[in-house]
């Protein structure tokens, strides 16, 4: 709690996060090449909720980052991982978080 790091103001101008600075933004590397960007060719995406499992509690229906139970791993997850509703396309995010 005496860590001076805590009082340093951190802000990312790439993604507006307060958890990391701009030059350590996960969006530098967490970039996916989508199957087809042309809207006409793109089929409507469907989120198969029955295939979603949680890495934290093992149950169905949510990703591990979004688990309500106490975190099992002792390594902190401050910035969010790939296994999060936030790592979905906007159209699917709505479906997932509803």
């Amino acid at each position: 709690s005496q860590c001076p790091q805590k009082w340093k103001r951190i802000f990312c101008t790439r993604c507006n996060s307060k958890r990391h600075s701009r030059d350590r933004c996960p969006s530098v590397w967490r970039v996916y090449l989508l199957k087809d960007d042309r809207p006409k060719k793109r089929k409507k995406l469907i989120l198969p909720m029955h295939s979603i499992y949680c890495y934290n509690c093992g149950l169905k229906g949510h990703f591990g980052d979004d688990c309500d139970l106490r975190r099992s791993s002792r390594v902190p997850n401050e910035d969010g991982s790939a296994f999060s509703g936030d790592n979905l396309t906007n159209s699917l995010k709505k479906e997932y978080f509803q």
């Binding site: 996916y32 199957k35 995406l45 989120l47 198969p48 790939a82 509703g85 790592n87």
Partner: peptide, 15 residues
């Protein structure tokens, strides 16, 4: 179980 693959958004070979 990867969200982007589940949603059929990406081809793993390209990612």
């Amino acid at each position: 179980l990867h969200p982007r693959i589940l949603a059929n958004e990406i081809n793993p070979i390209e990612n």
